[in-house]
Design a binder for these strands. Structure first.
Length: 331
DNA sequence: AATTTAAGCAACCGCGGCTCA
DNA sequence: TTGAGCCGCGGTTGCTTAAAT
């Protein structure tokens, strides 16, 4: 037996809200509050709407102090930082952006920000490509400077697509990142991908933040089959260095002692907040959600002038099992 | 000017988790 | 302990508008 419907589907209105409905809902909630019961609210308010629909309308549009319009560079930065760490936990991300709703942020990410990052990350012609300066100039302050030269998504010639910016939190916990032992460095090493593009790698120290990006098989697609997100597909690592990342076991770069393990998402329970991506050697830390930690993540991703610097990515993939990892480090 | 395609965004849906009887 | 009821989240859909052809 299936779950009982939350409302009488036949007798509720669906689709866009009219101004009259908006004002009814707004007036009611301002007068009486939600009463902690959204299901009963529409009837009391004289609305032929599902309670869930009322809740959504209120939270995303009608409640006070909702901010619409352009996102600022600072908001972009916060979204990127948190997405890199906790993935698509839009409500948590929204909690750090006053006036923004999770739905807003989700839409913004899927339609604009993600593409923006990809465009910025799209490499110039190989002949003009050179390793980024390190550390980056502190005079860089616009968002476009955040990722320019520092994000190098892997581009597959076979699929003609870039890898996506996907969170490691989508990687199955049992196979999650373990650690690094580390040779911290401020001078990057450079790896080459099959396109012979240079990817700078800064081996971090233990105290640094580690963020990993993985991917689930699916991405958000629209009904007509177009994909509003950039699909992450199979990538075949050609170089020795990249091939080293293509199995479900810890990888140890013999030169640099960088260890990363990852695995299949298995299609279940793969996006838990308590998956902490920066564990120590040989362990996967499990932590409870702590708002203070979220704030720390944001602040730690900022330099004094408020920009992320030294952002590096490594990408890998297991072609059949959708094991994908992008190793990301920033501080 | 008409048609097609893409982008943006509001809203819907289903599920997991929480609470409480 | 269990199950019903509800909330809230994240993924998805579909409508509207803008841009391209």
């Amino acid at each position: 037996m299936g779950r009982a419907p939350c409302c009488d589907k036949a007798n509720v209105k669906k689709g866009p809200w009219s101004p009259e409905e908006d004002s009814k809902l707004k007036e009611y909630i301002e007068k009486y509050g939600t009463g902690g019961n959204w299901i009963a609210l529409p009837q009391k308010a004289g609305l032929k709407r599902c309670g869930k629909s009322c809740r959504l309308r209120w939270l995303n549009y009608l409640r006070p102090n909702i901010k619409h319009g352009e996102f600022t560079d600072e908001e972009d930065r916060i979204i990127c930082s948190l997405f890199a760490t906790i993935g698509s936990r839009w409500s948590i991300i929204a909690a750090q952006l006053p006036g923004r709703t999770d739905n807003d942020i989700k839409n913004y990410w899927n339609t604009k920000l993600k593409k923006k990052l990809m465009v910025m990350a799209a490499a110039p012609p190989q002949s003009q490509r050179k390793p980024p300066p390190y550390p980056p100039s502190s005079s860089e302050s616009s968002f476009s400077s955040l990722y320019k030269d520092y994000t190098i998504p892997y581009y597959s010639t076979s699929t003609k697509s870039f890898t996506g910016f996907e969170p490691i939190s989508s990687v199955h916990q049992s196979n999650l990142l373990h650690s690094t032992s580390g040779l911290a460095s401020t001078n990057p090493s450079f790896l080459r991908n099959p396109e012979n593009l240079v990817c700078p790698v800064y081996y971090p120290s233990m105290k640094d933040n580690f963020l990993m990006f993985g991917s689930e098989t699916s991405c958000s697609t629209s009904s007509d089959g177009s994909c509003s997100q950039i699909k992450q597909e199979d990538h075949h690592m050609g170089s020795t260095n990249f091939q080293s990342f293509t199995s479900s076991r810890a990888y140890e770069d013999q030169t640099h002692k960088l260890m990363v393990s990852y695995g299949s998402n298995g299609g279940e329970n793969v996006n838990q907040w308590n998956e902490k991506a920066h564990g120590y050697c040989g362990e996967t830390q499990t932590v409870d959600y702590d708002p203070e930690e979220v704030k720390q993540l944001i602040s730690s991703s900022s330099t004094s002038n408020g920009i992320i610097n030294n952002t590096n990515f490594l990408f890998s993939d297991e072609n059949k099992t959708q094991e994908k990892v992008m190793y990301y480090y920033y501080h």
